[in-house]
């Protein structure tokens, strides 16, 4: 299992908590786009998250472009559990405590 950096673990935790697309994750984690998006690619490459496009029809009905959503895989959950033991702040996020990263 790959070891996670704090940033990667934070992003993973944000997705787990329910923030499922790039902008939402940035807002929650307080990280810049230049960090979040490459981290998402890396996590996806490592098999810790999976992405899927929203249904076109649904997006079209709401007159907006479709979104790409991310979800944590089982491996991601395992990695997050290990990372959670290492990074105390993640536990606070998991419990819904507001983060003050910036």
């Amino acid at each position: 299992m790959p070891s996670l950096s704090f940033t990667a673990a934070l992003i993973l935790q944000a997705i787990r908590t329910g923030y499922r697309y790039g902008f939402d994750i940035m807002e929650t984690a307080g990280l810049p786009s230049g960090t979040v998006y490459p981290a998402l690619r890396r996590l996806e490459q490592q098999g810790l998250i999976q992405s899927s496009w929203e249904e076109e029809a649904r997006a079209a009905a709401e007159q907006r472009p479709p979104r790409k959503y991310y979800r944590v895989t089982n491996d991601g959950k395992e990695a997050l559990k290990v990372a959670g033991e290492r990074y105390g702040l993640l536990q606070r996020l998991a419990k819904g405590t507001k983060l003050e990263v910036r």
């Binding site: 810049p32 786009s33 230049g34 960090t35 979040v36 998006y37 490459p38 690619r41 890396r42």
Partner: peptide, 10 residues
């Protein structure tokens, strides 16, 4: 938006 460059470079 400039962060897209970092993502693109990745």
């Amino acid at each position: 938006c400039w962060g897209s460059f970092a993502d693109a470079l990745w």
